[in-house]
Write a protein that binds this DNA or RNA. Structure first.
Lengths: 385, 385
DNA sequence: CGGGTTTTGTTTATTTGCGGCACAAAATCA
DNA sequence: TGATTTTGTGCCGCAAATAAACAAAACCCG
């Protein structure tokens, strides 16, 4: 039979519905361009001629992903098979720094990653940059937590990278929201989420980022700003938010609100969250009730989102991932109460912690990989021309 | 030039990107089966041979749509060109009546519509039934306002219709949520919404129904329950809703809440709404503030939905359509304040009243028409076989 | 008024992708 | 060792679309 374990021509044929002949001719082209390679035979134990195992090439074209966040930059290179091959992280506070300076620094990191990739015979076919803000048409429209406004990210980054590698062909640069990239990472690389084709993804960071995946595709909205769950309303008369409105979710379940409610300095950053986790772990009632309260608010807002979108699952990432054990009960309770179809938690766990494999840089790199895989011919052509 | 005004083979060819030859052969097939017909020549005034005008046939296959609502049933037949050709409405309160009885009555109306259609040489290729409730897999999972639960609508309706027309081939029956059908009607037949490919649609009826259209496609969600905006939360500790939770939008901006707040009997139905409109029109402060208050709540919830979904527009239908003049300012104010991208009302009116042409029965009929148009060959084949 | 131009629709040849089928290859089974 | 089973690969043909040539039917202009 055609196990999902190993890919053979015949297996693919029955899987996709094409003839073996058709698959054969397509595979031949991919082999020719080096996108896939044959890896010996299947030893299935069953009768019949064994199939030749096909594997996606672990060298050649790759994806380069860059995540620029508030207090760190991550760069990673992913090969066609989807595995992380290079990963570089640099911590420093990007707040208040000139955008061009931040992007130049990210470009230096990217250039180093490209070097490391070259040592493994990997050649990035493009760069995808993920940022915590409203990104559209290659520019950051606004990123309040970075303090950016109308920054032409793609252009600046491409320019900085070209300055570092003058002899090379310029890499195509694309860009997107950080939550979108993280959601895609979850979709493509997440563990245990195989059947989940549509979900709501939340990243609890300084701000609350959100993304929607629908049927395996990212939902971008008419202007590319979909998923901004952090500014759904908890209380119309609540505290003022940086966005100008009152009572946004971010003011109740954002990192700062969470830490403040637990009696921890809101500017403590990563250490603050670690401290909160420690206190929760040893049962500190103030910490627990702070988390519980945030979870309840999160649950109320999420129930609205679930009623609107009816996803398979809700994934919590970022800070929420570490606090999941204490956060989940409150969130789940509200969802079970308020999701109108009445079938929340009817089939399996629908509230999940984001898989640790899912991060924005990897998702960003995945975007490039997907582009290459979507049209290998175009890529091979560009490689030669 | 290839005006959008009249369709010719050459015009279609440049429009879709195919060759004139390819279009020609395809058109020939459609002509053969009677889906389109030639309607003389273009008199463009420009040089060159005039094209033969092609029009979608106004006889032959058609769509039959049935809307079963709380206090009325509408049936309509739409031809391939998308125009209403038969429309029958029957008012009676369906609450508390046996589902099979309601469906049988709807089937009788449908049978009459089929008869009227036949007089115009129109033959429905299928029936689509729209209902105010959670519909999935051909059954109503729950329709609180009708008092239905787990009703196998498609089966019952098909059976009832077959009993009325024993000599005929059974029509394929499909079903969906009423708000979904209304949204599709707006999408396909709505006036002045040509460029709007993704929007949020609200029907203010006894309950508040909602639907999401994204890129010209209905967003159904993982289980088919997407769009339930009526149960997004205004206040977690608010009044108890029929769904079991507290503080749902329906309790603040639903028809009953609206009437009660204005001091009108909530059970007054259509007359009640008409009375509210009269009072608003003559400036009754109680009525105006009731509408304003509902609009504000609606705006708060809608801002969340807009942040999440980033649609081109928000369409208000049902009761809201008549109250639009007094409702819109409050709704728009909240949206302008809370939509985080900051570009609400930057480009044109994004809050709109639903076009009067859009109603659920017509949308339901449109579903059938689209199915026929999507695969005319299958339809023609079924016609003969 | 009659040729030149322009646009349309059709015809014919060619390409392309895939299904159908047959066949060789390579394993297990008896 | 032969039968069976499954895989991968040619070869033929169909179906659809492109390309290119051509006929038809209008307008333009001298």
């Amino acid at each position: 039979m055609h196990d999902a374990g190993e890919a053979t021509r015949a297996g693919i044929a029955t899987h996709v519905g094409l003839t073996r002949a058709a698959v054969s001719s397509l595979v031949e082209q991919l082999l020719e361009h080096g996108f896939v390679s044959e890896w010996g035979k299947t030893s299935s134990g069953q009768a019949g001629r064994p199939g030749t195992v096909l594997k996606v090439a672990r060298s050649g074209p790759a994806g380069l992903g860059v995540e620029i966040n508030i207090d760190y930059v991550t760069v990673c290179v992913v090969d066609l098979a989807g595995t992380d091959r290079v990963r570089l992280v640099e911590h420093f506070d990007n707040r208040g720094v000139q955008p061009s300076e931040v992007l130049a620094r990210a470009a230096r990191l990217a250039a180093r990653a490209i070097g490391s990739a070259a040592e493994q015979d990997l050649v990035p076919a493009g760069v995808h940059v993920a940022l915590p803000g409203l990104v559209t048409g290659g520019t950051v429209r606004q990123a309040p937590n970075l303090g950016w406004q109308r920054v032409a990210v793609e252009g600046l980054f491409a320019q900085a990278l070209l300055a570092l590698r003058p002899a090379h062909r310029p890499l195509p640069v694309s860009s997107d929201n950080e939550a979108n990239a993280a959601a895609l990472a979850e979709l493509w690389f997440g563990a245990g989420t195989e059947g989940v084709r549509s979900f709501l993804y939340l990243t609890g960071e300084i701000g609350i980022g959100g993304a929607l995946v629908l049927g395996g595709e990212l939902l971008r909205g008419a202007h590319g700003f979909a998923g901004e769950i952090g500014h759904m309303v908890v209380d119309p008369d609540g505290p003022l938010c940086r966005c100008g409105a009152r009572g946004c979710l971010e003011q109740y379940a954002g990192q700062a609100a969470l830490l403040t409610a637990a009696g921890i300095d809101a500017d403590a950053g990563v250490q603050g969250v670690a401290e909160l986790e420690r206190r929760a772990r040893r049962g500190d009632p103030v910490a627990l009730s702070a988390i519980e309260r945030a979870g309840q608010r999160l649950g109320v807002v999420l129930s609205g989102a679930v009623n609107l979108f009816d996803p398979d699952a809700v994934m919590l990432g970022g800070v929420y991932r570490e606090l999941m054990d204490w956060l989940a009960p409150a969130v789940d309770r509200e969802l079970a109460l308020r999701v109108v179809s009445g079938l929340w938690s009817e089939d399996g766990k629908r509230l999940r912690a984001s898989s640790s494999l899912g991060d924005a840089a990897r998702g960003a790199a995945g975007v490039i990989v997907r582009e290459v895989l979507a049209d290998p011919a175009a890529c091979a052509e560009r490689e030669q021309g």
